[in-house]
Amino acid sequence: MHELSLSEAILGTVLKHADGRRVTAVDMTIGALRQVVPDSLEFYWDIVARDTLCEGAELRHTMIAGRARCETCEKEWELDLPIFLCACGGTARAVAGEEFEVESIVVEDKEDACIAQR
């Protein structure tokens, strides 16, 4: 339900790295603990990307399941519910599932860069 805000944040980060080049694809890693609905993110992405260098760019993603590890007994488990209190009473840390990263983008080379390569 916060996908509009997040898609705007992605746009800001992608444009920073695009350095004035047109972007055709964005590859993301999304952790399950971020409570992001990918379909919703893609829907808003298409809207916020309009009239920018990202217009029409495909937003692709890889989901990462949430995993916790107890700091006391070192037990590790996959998170179904967001429970970080271990059965031993210890506090668990998320070792996976908190990712929300732009891994890479695909950009069209600038005209002059193409000429220089010839």
Binding site: L6, A9, I10, T13, V14, H17, A18, T24, M28, F100, E101, V102, E103, S104, I105, V106, V107, E108, D109, A113, C114, Q117
Partner: peptide, 12 residues
């Protein structure tokens, strides 16, 4: 010509 640019940074 298209180029893949590795960013590997938090989207925020």
């Amino acid at each position: 010509h298209r180029t893949k640019v590795t960013i590997a940074s938090d989207a925020l």
